[in-house]
Design a protein around this nucleic acid. Structure first.
Lengths: 184, 184
DNA sequence: CTCCTTGATGTCAGTGTCTGACATCGACGG
DNA sequence: CCGTCGATGTCAGACACTGACATCAAGGAG
């Protein structure tokens, strides 16, 4: 038998989301999260660089989806490449994940420090996308604008997807919003 | 005679910039900054919400310039409105301020936490601009895209303006970069 | 089987950010 | 001359985060 239960990272993330949802981000201490996961505060910081980061695990997988989507496209027009990236990334948001995503987003929206971190992640995504586009031969300024437009579309789609009463699937919504952008 | 010297806020900001430049952001404590300004740590936090914020004072004035520029324009095309805002905001960066801006930007670039805060400010600016455009009758999605494009132009202009060896004035550079964008 | 190394965790002590509560004391109006 | 107001100080404390070192099961080398 192992000395400790496995899956510490996930237990920490689950405990954190639960506590943040029930009592708020600021009123939850890292020690509480760790205790709820059967660990100590010190161990929390071995898995997550800071208290906010626990809500953003999985972001790397998400970014990877954008990149593989882009890599798998044979298009040459910048916006077509971005569209392929978006389409692939939509797979990150199956319907079963909607409630969870909604809960998470509520927590983030309720706390400026978390909103700041989220914006930073989106900005990093745009930078990554820009680099990938440049790799595909897109001129730098064009690439930056296309990437940022793509991220805008993603953000709006996500907001629509978790809106109360919304039942449309992520990729359907995203196609609509992308079309709206392209109409400009 | 006043019980204390006036201009505490400015003294704190000056002391902070100096210390950050000489020994780095993280290795400077708030207590040091306060002491250098002849005040206590507690007073620092009465002027600035957190340690990072001391580098972003004046951001409000800057945002106000964008808004007055936009308000003073009689254009109706979204990008023309944004251009007017950009043009007015350029006044915030006279040549005398270039060295100071460069020093400040170096500090920010050297620290992830500061970069995160800066991105947040840019994002907030885009949101403000979007709202102003919507007020002027621009459709929401269009407004958001135009605002974000405007902020992109500003960012690139700023980067070019503080690049080593650069001597062009802010508004000249900005006109060039805006033209490049419009060519798309 | 025993020994040794390794990796995940715990323990502990400390630094630094940030906050609330309350004290101080010159300025300024009445 | 007095009262109150505003900027600052003092103090205690919560909490995030870090470095150094201890612990101990697992798993491999001999």
């Amino acid at each position: 038998m192992p000395r400790w239960e496995s899956g510490s990272r996930e237990r920490l993330a689950d405990a954190a989301l639960g506590l943040f949802a029930s009592q708020g981000f600021e009123r939850t201490t890292v020690a509480e999260i760790a205790a709820a996961a059967g660990l100590t505060e010190r161990t929390f910081f071995r898995y997550y660089a800071d208290k906010r980061e626990v809500l953003f695990a999985g972001q790397d997988d998400f970014e990877a989806l954008f990149l593989t989507g882009l890599a798998g496209s044979s298009a040459t027009a910048p916006m077509d490449l971005v569209a392929a990236a978006l389409e692939n990334a939509a797979g990150f948001f199956p319907d079963e994940k909607r409630a969870w995503s909604r809960a998470r987003q509520e927590i983030i929206a309720a706390n400026p420090a978390l909103a700041e971190r989220e914006q930073h992640k989106m900005s990093a995504l745009a930078t990554t996308l820009t680099a990938a586009l440049v790799d595909r031969g897109v001129e730098e300024t064009t690439a930056a604008l296309a990437a940022e437009a793509g991220v805008s579309v993603f953000r709006r789609t996500f907001a629509a997807w978790i809106a109360p009463g919304q039942t449309g699937s992520f990729d359907t919504l995203q196609r609509e919003i992308l079309a709206q952008l392209r109409a400009l």
